[in-house]
Amino acid sequence: MPLLETVDLSKSFGGLRAISNLNINIEAGSIHGLIGPNGSGKSTFFNLVTGVYQPDPGSKIIFNGHDITKSASHDIGALGIARTFQLLRLFSEMTVLQNLMVGYHTHVPYGFMSTIFNNSAVVKKDAETKSEMMELLELIGMADYADMPASELSGGQRRLVALGRAMAMRPKLLMLDEPAAGLSPVNVDNLLSIVMALKQRFGLTVLIVEHILKVVMETCDTVTVLDYGEKIGEGSPDAVKDDHAVIEAYLGQEMDDDEVRKAFNS
């Protein structure tokens, strides 16, 4: 049984069909790539799965046996789906550590009333959470910046914090929306090795949207290709690479075979 399954998933914005009858299965434990040209619906897919957008009637999203089609974002998060945003959406005026602590929100072991009537227990629990989050910050190499406001970090550091905040949710499924956008090649490699390490350590399933095709080809077990909100190809990276429909849609018809090969390998 797949960890995440969408059945006839659709989303229209006015007349525009951003996602069209999409059936995707993401197998537990896999790294699943989602690629497609700009505007093909990748981020919309993320927003549908995480409850940010409501799907059109007739759609169905099932996660780990739960029908989450109509669930609220915070309930979906609590079930074990974490995501990053293409534009990060960090809590800018909060510190790095606080960003992660919010990620941990659904696991907080006390309620509002104990903050007033049993505050010493709250302080103790928070201290435990803090050290757990510090361990996570060590893993992503951001422990030195724990007390810095997120707004004061560089672009690459902000990407790492977004990843850390998602990981603080202790998710089953981690969805990354262009996590390496704007990073230098060295930082791309660093980020990928961190993702792989996290996957190993926490037994994650990963869904990754990425423009750098080399990344997708090297890391993914399965790749789904979107174009105009429709699935136009799916399979192992090698199979997708040789799929003519994919090559045409994704890279345009004018490229010859050599150029295509180059694009996928560089």
């Binding site: 915070h74 974490a82 809590f91 919010v102």
Partner: peptide, 8 residues
């Protein structure tokens, strides 16, 4: 949006 996605 980010708050909600993170379970708030």
């Amino acid at each position: 949006v980010a708050a909600a996605v993170h379970g708030v």
